[in-house]
Amino acid sequence: MTTRDDDPGTEDLETGMQPSPLRVVPKIFVAALVPLFFFNSLGIANWTRSLPPTELHAGLNKAAVAWHDIMLSTGPARVFAWLRDTIGVKLD
């Protein structure tokens, strides 16, 4: 336990950092999501499969599977599968 002089937990992490304008964030989000969308299309397809069974979710799943097929045939999903096989560590 600490005394008040130690003053833990009150330090802001922002100390010594520079804020940015909000307008940069959407660009960052888009740039971060694109690789996931293209390379991990299997993850999206799996996620839509895990949703509760409704007509909307079935439609989503169909679209996600179609997207994954395109990514498989054009390459990005295969690259990710190869990466996974190469560096992935199995959880047992």
Binding site: K27, I28, A31, A32, L33, V34, P35, L36
Partner: peptide, 10 residues
Amino acid sequence: PWSLGALAGL
């Protein structure tokens, strides 16, 4: 921003 986003995504 684009490079930072791409780096985070990768």
